[in-house]
Design a binder for these strands. Structure first.
Lengths: 340, 340
DNA sequence: TTGTATGCGTTATCAT
DNA sequence: ATGATAACGCATACAA
């Protein structure tokens, strides 16, 4: 009773052959009486068809898994949508949240070898040694969206997000802001580290010398973390008497948090303080004020990754591919008042 | 060459047995020489393991499919996240966009019988006769999120969105607004029709008599459609000299479009015009001004649906379940200036 | 270590 | 219309 009933047991319970049971449930060619008997037996013993077995027999479609830390992140949502589109009806797409436990991605890659899927697309926040190891050993194809050493021999699509930070700093300097603070994300992630480095390089290039107290780290890439960090940044600048006319945030969510914090403190955006994000989320264009941001082309990256996987399915022997995507600055109202 | 190579052919190409080929690739117990030969042969003929077969042999997990019109819709994203969480690691979750073609949902239900999945969660915008038919016939369990006649015998979780509209109208009247316009969504959808009816009932209840010109229909449940519709509404009201101090929008995206349109026309929100949404999207709380909305508890609905499916897996024979969720009003700055 | 044979749960082919 | 059986692609128990 505790085990999962098979079609075999349905047939036994109904007192008919296996083949008849199958036909009665799929409705191919069976007498009304047979259908009645079989469906009754199936319901009685609690039979549910096994999708895997059906799929095997019927020559089912390929399945690819898309694994990200947080499905709710708008960035990943864009990727998800693009991947789904690119894969089309012929390939089924599963999503898997890996953010709950560390190195869950590694388990996932290993589980691929147990039939979890025919291919995998991941966008890992951190590339741990264990992950590198798993990537090197995998037999089923994996595409990584994010920074990755090329000698791993893994299909890869990436974008240099450190230059993205450079672009916003360039823009801020160009419109006359020189007292630029920054809200970083956690430094122990790949994007976090890259953007942190990008900011350091940019201020050096422009000969800016932001005080340490204007460089702050949010605990997470979220709006609430952004509010918290920005509030601290603004009050600290005020107390210390530090000039501050712009804040670079390392993603849109933090930036929106920063705008919220600024307003609560009565700071006007962009007149008193310019605020920028990164990712060019849908919300950026819609926000009030609209958020200046840098598009990292998430949709395009997702589409490219999906295409790479399709092409690898078609030709498993071809050399590993690498493609990159250009960051593009999108200037909006959070740094410049709109032309009237 | 055009067909998909199987392990059998790898074994043949390597001149070893099927079992040895299997072991060499999974790395169980095989000599280095064997591993080398087999992996070489596999690479040469372009072998990729079949996930379905592996999963069948290894006793793979259940797979459920979540099908919605647009994966990008924040509403569905919340559901997706909750479903993923509730299902846990033991059940794999696939997403499927059904918005591309009409009645693609029906095809999906039928394709379930071909091994596409062990269970299905759908949130259809429209319940067509064909869909009803497919639901009545399906052998694999389906949970419908949305309005559904109970005699279909399908597990169902729903929320009455017509009362949601009533709640915002009550609120607007309570704060002294009586010249209330509305931006509806497409009427040929389930939510669209329900909310339209809800508005009609509410204005009747409060003895309001909004002129026809203040009741408008957006072409879609999107921000851009909202901007378009709201612009038309505001300019029309201005030209006709109609008083207008509030606009009920049937979802958050349209409402945000309406706020955008209002600002472009120089209308102050909420002082001159109050604007409300429905869905209580994440963006609602973060927007500027924060959007008064009605939570339809998407996350909770998703979680309930996932749980229903799990419970049906556990006991296929139990009677069909129905659960509902309460709409709750969330008052924010788009209708009332914040307390200072 | 390697090969042979069986079975995972289902549908399709071929008889009857 | 129904029943017996092979096959889908793979991993493993067993024998060698």
């Amino acid at each position: 009773m505790g085990t999962k009933p098979t079609l075999h047991e349905v047939a036994a319970a109904a007192g008919v052959s296996l083949a008849s049971a199958s036909r009665a449930l799929t409705g191919r060619s069976a007498s009304p009486e047979m259908v009645r008997k079989v469906r009754a037996a199936a319901k009685r013993i609690g039979y549910l068809p096994d999708a895997t077995a059906r799929s095997l027999r019927l020559g089912g479609h390929r399945q690819v898994v898309f694994a990200v830390d947080d499905i709710g992140n708008p960035n990943y949502v864009q990727m998800l949508r693009a991947i789904e589109e690119e894969l089309g009806d012929a390939i089924r797409l599963s999503v898997s949240a890996t953010g709950r436990r560390p190195d869950q991605t590694v388990e996932l890659i290993r589980s691929l070898s147990m039939g979890a899927g025919d291919g995998l697309i991941i966008s890992p926040l951190r590339v741990t040694p264990a992950l590198r190891q798993a990537l090197a050993e995998t037999v089923v194809p994996v595409v990584v969206i994010g920074t990755l050493h090329s000698d791993l021999g893994i299909d890869n699509v990436y974008v240099d997000s450190s230059v993205a930070v450079g672009m916003v700093v360039d823009h801020l300097v160009a419109i006359g802001r020189r007292n630029i603070g920054v809200i970083n994300g956690p430094g122990n992630t790949n994007p976090g580290a890259a953007r942190r480095a990008g900011f350091a390089a940019a201020v050096r290039r422009h000969d800016l010398h932001p005080s340490e107290s204007l460089q702050i780290t949010a605990t997470d890439f979220t709006v609430s973390a952004g509010i918290e960090a920005a509030t601290l940044l603004f009050t600290r600048a005020r107390e210390d008497g530090e000039a501050l006319d712009a804040v670079v945030c390392v993603n849109d969510l933090i930036a929106i948090g920063a705008i919220n914090a600024a307003m609560r403190l009565g700071l006007r955006v962009p007149e008193e303080i310019a605020i920028t994000g990164i990712d060019d989320t849908e919300m950026a264009a819609l926000y009030n004020p609209p958020l200046t941001s840098v598009s990292l082309q998430s949709a395009r990256r997702g589409r490219l990754a999906a295409r790479m996987l399709r092409e690898r399915f078609a030709d498993p022997a071809r050399p590993p591919q690498r493609e990159s995507v250009e960051a593009t600055l999108v200037v909006r109202g959070s740094t410049m008042a709109e032309a009237s």
